[in-house]
Structure formats: C-alpha cells, structure tokens
Design a protein around this nucleic acid. Structure first.
Length: 921
RNA sequence: GCCCAGAUGGCGGAAUUGGUAGACGCGCUAGACUCAAAAUCUUGUUUCGGCAACGGAGUGCAGGUUCGAUUCCUGUUCUGGGCACCA
C-alpha cells in the first residue's frame, strides 16, 4: 500500500463535495469564526504560485478553528470589474463579461485542485448584477447621507433638510464650500436647483470637478498606471490634465474615526502606521495673508505658525484659483510658460524631483500681518493643490525645501533662529528662541505657537486648525467595465434612482471606445443614456474598489434578494476575525472598506463599525527569472559562467524548462520557433542560466502554475511546501527546488501507518513515555504555531516528530491518531484517507483537536552552556531544582572553566535557571 | 522625494523576555541496498587553521549599551511594497 496521492486527493475532493462537507450554516450553537481572504481579480494569466500563499494559510486556520469547535465562515469570490479586462476587450473585441466568465472558470479549477475548504455556495462575483445591485444600493445610501459633525456620524440627508428648515446652516461649516451660509427663510426661498446644489456640498457621495489624465491622441482618460514618464503607455502620446465632473466619497469626514478605529483592531504596527500617515493628521493654523493692492487674501495652512516672521516668500500650487487674478501683466508670459510645463508633470514627479527646483514669480506681494513686510508670491510645482489650502508660507531658515527654493531663486533669507541656523542648510528645530520676530523676540518656539494663534484669532485673520493629508476619494471612472451609477440627471441635477429599479444593469456594448469628450463608453449608447427628454443617465462607472468595499458582508448572506445582507446574519458573523492579504492594499482597499462599514453602521444597517478585527499581511512571492545569453548576431547561446568572453544579449527563458539553473536544451529548442536551431556553448557539459529576482509575471516567463506542482506532487505536498517556504508575512522568491523534501516527509509519515507489502501496520500497543513526550511536544508547538499563523515552523515540527517516531519505529494508534488530527489542516486529503484506514467512520474534519498535557514533556535537568567572559567554553548538566550555590561551586571546580580562568578570581558568576551560566573574570 | 518593511551558510529559513547562532528542509558529500537505476536508509556539511582534540572569525555595513546582542540604541547602504485612476 503506497501513498497514491492522485487517487486519494481526487477521491476526497469528490467525497467532500457530495457530502457538502464545507457548507456553513448561519445558525449554530457553536462560537463563530470568520476567516477571510482578499478575493482575487480574475486576470487572464490565471493563478500563479503567489496567489495561494494566503489562501492556504487561511484554509489551514479555518480548518484548525473548525477542529477547535468553531462554526467557521470561509468562502471565496471574484473582484471581477476592472481595467485589464476592458483593455483586453479593446484589443481583441472579446466582451469583458465573456472574458471574465472564462477567467473565473479557470481560477476555480486551479483553486479546486488545491483542496480548499471554501463554502462555494456563498461565492460572490462583483460584476454579477445580483451583487452590484447592492453596490449601487450602498452607493445611494452614501449619496443620501451627510456627515453630522455634532453627532460624529452619517445621517440621512432628510435630517439635514429639517435642520436647514429650522435654522438654515447656522452653526455649521459646509464641508464642500465653507462660504455657503443661509438662514431658514433663505433656504425655503431657494428653488430646487439651488437647494440640491447646496445639499451636494454636504452629501457623502458628491459631484465635483477634478483633473484626470487626458490623452487627446487616444481620446481617452488614462489611469496613472497607463501613463509612463508623462506619455501614454500605449503609443507614447502626450498626456495632460483635464478637469471633468466626477463623483467623490467624502472620506475626509471620517478621517478622525478611521484614525481612532485603528486603536480597536489588531493590525500590524506597520500597517497602522501606514494608514495613519495616509490620513496624515496634523495640528497647526490657517492664516489669511492680505495681498498688496488687492482685496483678495491668500489662505495658507501651516504647522509652524511660530515662524511667521521668517516668511520670506509664499508659494501657491500652480492650479490655485488665485493665480489667474494676482499675476501681474509683466509676469503673465513667464507664468503661462510655467503652467504649461506643470501640465505635463505627474503628481509623483512633482513630489519626487527635489533636486530640480522650479517655480515662477507671479509679480504679486502678500503682506505679513504682524510687521507689514511685503512677501513675494510664487507658484511652484512642489506645492500640491489638494493638500491644505494649496498655498504655503515659506520659511527658508526652517524648512529645507523652502531653503533650496530661496537659494535657487536668490530670495533673501531671514534668520529667526539665531545660531541654530548656519546659512548652509535649514534647521527645522522647535526648540530655538525666536529672533528677528517682532513681539516674539526671545520667546521659545513652542510658546510662540500659542501666542501667534491667539493673536491671529483676535485679529480675525487666522485660527487653530487640524488638517488631514487624506483627500476625498475619487469615485468616477471613464470606463465601461464597472458598476453603472444609479443616478439620473434631470436638467443637469443628479437624482438617485428608485431602489426598486435596481440593479441598473450595465448595457451590452459592441464598442469599448470612449465617448466624444472622454466620457466612458456608455456615453455612446444614446438610447440608454437618454431616459426621457431632459433626463440622462450618468455615463461614468464606479472604480475597482467599489465592489471590494463590502464583499465580506455579502458572504454572510449571499443569496438575499431583499437586502445586501440580513441583519441577523451580519449580527451573527459580525467582524471578520482574521483577514489575510497583501500589503499592497494597505491604504486603498482597507480604508475604503473601513469607511463603507462605518457609513452602514451609522445608518443602522449593521452592528459593528470596524470590518476586520485582525489583519495579516502575506508577503509577495517574487519570481525568480532564468536568463540565457545569446551571442550577439548569432543563434549561439553561451552558458552563464562563460558569457563574459562574448558580447551577448540577455533573454528571459521559461523557468519551467530549467531545472534549478540548468537549462533543458532540448526543451529550449522546442519552446519557440526562434530557438529551433539554437546551439550551445556549455560549461562542464551543462548550460547554466543566469538568475534574476523580479516580479512574477507572464511577460518574464517566471510564473509557476500551481496545477503543474499539484499534478506532480499532490495538493497536500503543495500546500505544505508553500507554508514551509517561510513566514506568511515575509516576501520571498519562489523556488520549486525544495518541494521534494516536503513530499518525502509525507511519504515518510505514510510509512508510519502503512507498509507497501503489509498494508496498515498501526498497532494498539501502549505508548512509552518517550513517544508521549514527542507527541505532546508536537501538540503544544503545532497548536501554538497554527493559532499564530507560524506555519513554516509548524511544518518543521511535523518533520521533527515524524523523524523521531520513525527512528523509534512507533506505529501506535495512541500516538498516530492525534498526530493525524494535528496535520489535517495542512494535508487534509492524506489525513482523511489514513483516518478512514484507522477505522473511523466520521470525517476527520469534525474530529476533536488533541489537548496538550504538560505531564509528558516535563524536564528534570538541563544541560547548561558554560561561558567564560561571555564566550561559551563548555557544557554542564544540572537538575533544574539545583541550588544556585551548588551550581556555582561545581562550575568553578570544573577543569575547563579553571583552564579558561587562568588562575584569576571570578568577579561574578551569572546563573540563569534553565538558560545559561557565565563566569566573569 | 515621502511612508512602511526586510537583510542570518551555496539556497529557503530557525532562534520565548537580550542567554549554546545556523533547528527543519533543499543542494552538495561519502557510504549501504541494487546487475543498474529509482526509491529508501546512514554519514558529513557556516568559514578559516588543524589528522584530531581544539582554536580564530562570523547574523548587510560603522559605532554604542551590556557579564552577554541576530535580538536594544544611533548612523548608514542595499532590496521590496505603497504614494491617491492597476488590482
């Protein structure tokens, strides 16, 4: 009886499916546990070995929790809307819906191969109308809400209207436009258009104008990803900014709650830090500077109001509204030239290029409110319109970027920090005593901050302000393959569609070309757009993150036709207990889904406001590419070690035809027609490939398909090998080499149970203390490591355990049966098979997890490392309960110790019980 | 540029709270079984010196704290991820 993994895995996968072994009920007396994977985008490339890393980890955890007596929700779905499918459609004419369906089928096949315990009855697909009906519904909830800063939560827009009817907007700051102020009487006098326009400035989903990457040559809006070095990736055409009307989510209203919520969840500190930095809360002041010869003001936000006497110039973002009105005629030409230059620059380039200093003087001067000094006003690309007020006061002696700017443009620098400023570089100190600072002279900076703010508030030209770096989330895409907005425009004013008319289905199109003005392809379907005279649909679609912002709720109640998920179901499953996915989603997806959850909570639709109780970030699996070297101008390929003797070109070669680093030259010739007549210059009779670590990608021929490995070694081996590679959280390059070792381990384990000739060899003998010690050490370690997602060390412990049991020739049921249960989460097929051989009728999936008993693992003595001056020189064994004085005496009497002490007297003897001994001389 | 993370043998990695660096596996090495191969089992494997006993060095780099540092602190280099329309 040998380990025939192919038959075993097929048998049990069919068995589990037939018996609905992984179906989960929303009604169970057991405690619940919700284990979630980040669902994949079903790309045409299929799954590679990087994808299942997190899935296997959660699968092990889900199975472990089930054995521990939990009712576990664990399921899978597809994040199916997105750009690549649409691009594929543009290239091939293949409809995205068709491509998506094919891709999902391929993904499912690959996933099934690995033996996951998903409840597939709960699968969701974001591009399915029965799913995006509720994405649209939630969007409308957001659209029909505003954020009440008094109550600190989202409320229906109707509560805002009643407020307006009673008091106008007195006592409120309108989040969208702070200049809006009106009384109740005024509100009532407004027409519908005016009222709706005001409400738009409050809504949590609102329309505003924002810039997009516009490529005139392609006639389309491009994603940042499609723009490379300022030109389009396709065709290399110029890309400029274009303002378009777009939907936004007012996530900034939730900034503080998103920040505070982090205290209640268990994410890694790094992850929390990244989110905090993204939210970017800072305290400072907003200050109005009057302009010389003008009635307008420049409003700046600064975290350092104490340095106000050191302001030597002001900088506006090039997009700032004031630029047009304050530029003097003499400077107009220069400014126009500069604005044209900035048009071509991406935000990333503008922030990253610090060596290259650019800017342009507007000709205007601001006035320092305290000493009346005239301050030149510049524009420069390093100031971004979206942050703060889009204008800064520049203090060159205290800020390095301002300093560089002043030096570059020869702007005189005022030193307000005395000796702390050396004239060579800025000093951002907060501890100096101020100089050259009028009434603040001699005051230390920390005190000055409060003085300045009070004074500004007194003068009515400034106030204390908390600022967030985070901006509202753009929610429109000029694309086809996304959720249509459930919005119609009547005479240009957006209205929510009636709930009963949802879903608004994505109409079928034949053509994925953009609309005339760069709108999405939907704009071309005129009979869909024009609902009635004067009534038009929104032609943009929602972004990729819409569907993924709430899918974890739909899993709880995926077939519900009346609501996105029944309240009973969301109350039962509640927060996701463990969420596993890559750090690349650290800010985007995680912040958006946290916000959506909070909105739904505020509106009373669910009972919790943080979606994910704990989060584990799986590392990326990198590709390890293989390279061959073609001698230039020939069909001759030279081995890596000899390539320096020739002039060569480097080519990527499919990693699947390379064994380690040795190229299968026959397979290479067959790989592509170009290589059919290849000849090789070998070293030691072999062709050795170069190795390069990079992203795993189809283009680099370094992807490894899990199917191939499952076929060769079986799913159980594949699962354990992926876990054995290293910590789940750590990024690492893929290397198939070591998989043999794990496969050998499973075969060795099999041989503890079964013999090729004799069949099952498990006996009923009573285990020895030694065997029990091995078992219980293993129980302890596996339980601990499985619970803590430390799967690589768990696999290692299984190996140690099996090695030791094999040495002892232990085939005892009392030892092997508990071991099998421990291993089930890792290698479910093999364990189920052996479990059945042991005569169990019930599936091992529902077995009881073994309990660790300390009695069996107790040690009575310890072999101490003995160090002299911190260097280990010997070992000495002592009972654990030996008296310190006795140990000391024995150690000092030891021959080796005495040799190393060289006759000197010990200064100190350090004895740590059960750890080590160190003699200091 | 900014934010976050990582760096340990030929390779993946291990090392409770600061306490024997290199567990486990791969690869390599020598051997057993075999006509042979596969499979399996056994031996050795950080590096340098030495037949060995043993000794020196050693966790990216440079410092520091400590009886003792892969672990804590300061600085630095390199690599990976993110930076708001890829998912």
């Amino acid at each position: 009886m040998e380990y025939n993994f192919r038959a075993i895995e097929k048998k049990w996968q069919e068995q589990w499916e037939q018996s609905h072994a992984y179906r989960v009920s929303n009604d169970s007396p057991k405690p619940k546990c919700y284990v979630l994977d980040m669902f994949p985008y079903p790309s045409g490339a299929g799954l590679h070995v990087g994808h299942p890393l997190g899935y296997i980890a959660t699968d092990i955890y889900a199975r472990y929790k089930r054995l521990k007596g939990f009712n576990v929700l664990h399921t899978m779905g597809y994040d199916a809307f997105g750009l690549p499918t649409e691009q594929y459609a543009l290239e091939t004419g293949q409809h995205p819906a068709v491509t998506t369906e094919q891709n999902i089928k391929a993904f499912r096949e690959q996933l099934d191969n690995i033996g996951f315990c998903y409840d597939w009855d709960r699968q969701v697909t974001t591009s399915d109308p029965s799913y995006y009906k509720w994405t649209q519904w939630i969007f409308l909830q957001i659209f029909e809400s505003w954020y009440n800063r008094e109550t600190q939560k989202a409320e229906p827009i109707s509560t805002l209207i009643s407020l307006f009817e009673q008091n106008g907007n007195a006592g409120h700051i309108c989040p969208g436009d702070r200049t809006i102020q009106f009384t109740a009487a005024e509100w009532k006098s407004y027409g519908e258009t005016e009222q709706r326009n005001i409400l738009m400035q409050y809504r949590l989903a609102y329309l505003a104008h924002a810039e997009v990457n516009w490529c005139a040559a392609l006639g389309t809006v491009l994603a940042n990803d499609e723009v490379v070095n300022g030109v389009s990736e396709r065709g290399g055409y110029p890309v400029v900014k274009k303002k378009m009307s777009q939907w936004f989510l007012r996530i900034t209203e939730y900034a503080n709650r998103l920040l505070e919520g982090l205290e209640t969840v268990s994410f890694s500190d790094a992850m929390k830090e990244m989110q905090r930095n993204w939210i970017g809360k800072s305290q400072g002041a907003e200050i109005k500077f009057a302009l010389k010869n003008s009635t307008e003001n420049i409003e700046v936000y600064t975290t350092r109001p104490d340095t106000i006497f050191g302001v030597d110039f002001m900088v506006l973002a090039p997009e700032h509204d004031l630029v047009k009105s304050i530029t003097t005629p003499e400077q107009q030409g220069e400014i126009d030239k500069y604005l044209e230059y900035v048009q071509s620059r991406s935000e990333r380039e503008r922030m990253a290029d610090v060596k290259q200093i650019t800017g342009c003087f507007t000709g205007a001067y601001a006035i320092n409110p305290f000493d009346g000094r005239e301050i030149p006003v510049w524009i420069a690309e390093y100031v971004l319109a979206g942050y703060g007020t889009g204008a800064i006061m520049a203090v060159p002696c205290g800020d390095q970027r301002d300093f560089g700017f002043a030096k570059h443009f020869n702007i005189p620098i005022t030193n307000i920090i005395g000796d702390a400023f050396n004239g060579e570089e800025a000093n951002a100190t907060k501890d100096a005593k101020l100089q050259n600072s009028g009434f603040l002279n001699g005051v230390d900076m920390k005190t000055a901050t409060d003085i300045v703010i009070s004074k500004l508030e007194e003068m009515g030209i400034g106030k204390r302000k908390i600022n967030y770096k985070m901006r509202d989330a753009g929610f429109s895409r000029q694309r086809y393959w996304g959720e249509p907005f459930p919005i119609v425009y009547k005479n240009g004013i957006p209205y929510a569609m009636d709930e009963k008319d949802l879903p608004l289905e994505l109409p079928h199109v034949e053509n994925y070309k953009p609309g005339a003005e760069g709108e999405g392809p939907l704009a071309n379907i005129t009979d869909w757009v024009n609902v009635a005279p004067g009534v038009k649909r929104e032609t943009n679609t929602m972004p990729g993150y819409a569907g993924s912002s709430w899918y974890f709720l739909r899993y709880m109640d995926p077939h519900n036709k009346h609501t996105f998920a029944d309240r009973k179901a969301t109350d039962y499953w509640n927060q996701v207990d463990v969420y596993v996915g890559g750090t690349e989603h650290a800010v985007g997806h995680l912040l958006y889904s946290r916000m959506w959850t909070k909105v739904l909570y505020d509106l009373g639709h669910i009972g919790f406001q943080e979606p994910f109780k704990s989060l584990i970030n799986q590392g990326m699996i990198g590709g390890s590419s293989r390279l061959v070297y073609r001698v230039r101008g020939t069909h001759q390929y030279v081995s890596h070690g000899l390539k320096d003797q020739y002039e060569t070109d480097e080519l990527h070669v499919d990693v699947n035809i390379v064994d380690g680093v040795e190229l299968d030259t026959a397979a290479f010739k067959k790989w592509k027609p170009d290589f059919a007549d290849a000849t090789f210059i070998l070293e030691d009779g072999k062709y050795i490939c170069g190795v390069q670590l990079e992203k795993m990608s189809k283009r680099l021929f370094n992807t490894v398909n899990p199917n191939d490995l499952v076929e060769k070694y079986g799913a159980d081996t594949f699962r354990m090998y992926e876990m054995f590679l290293g910590p789940v959280e750590q990024s690492k390059p893929w290397d198939t080499k070591g998989i043999e070792g794990v496969h050998r381990f499973l075969k060795k384990l099999w041989r503890l149970f079964a013999d090729e000739q004799k069949g099952i060899i498990v006996n009923e003998q009573v285990p020895t203390p030694e065997e029990l010690k091995i078992l219980h050490k293993t129980i302890q370690k596996i339980d601990h490591d499985t619970n803590g997602f430390s799967y690589n060390t768990a696999v290692s412990q299984f190996m140690i355990c099996v090695n030791e049991l094999a040495t002892l020739r232990c085939h005892k049921r009392a030892i092997l049966e508990p071991l099998l249960i421990l291993l089930t989460p890792y290698a479910p097929h093999l364990c189920e098979e052996l479990w059945q051989y042991l005569g169990n009728n019930e599936s091992i999936l529902n077995a009881l997890y073994p309990v660790y008993n300390e009695e069996y693992t107790k040690e009575s003595a310890f072999n101490y490392p003995v160090a002299i001056n911190g260097k280990t020189r010997s070992e000495m064994g002592f009972p654990l309960d030996a008296a310190v004085a006795d140990i000391e005496q024995a150690v000092l009497g030891n021959e080796i110790v005495q040799k190393w002490m060289e006759g000197k007297a010990p200064k100190k003897v350090i004895i740590v019980k059960g750890k080590m001994i160190n003699v200091v001389v």
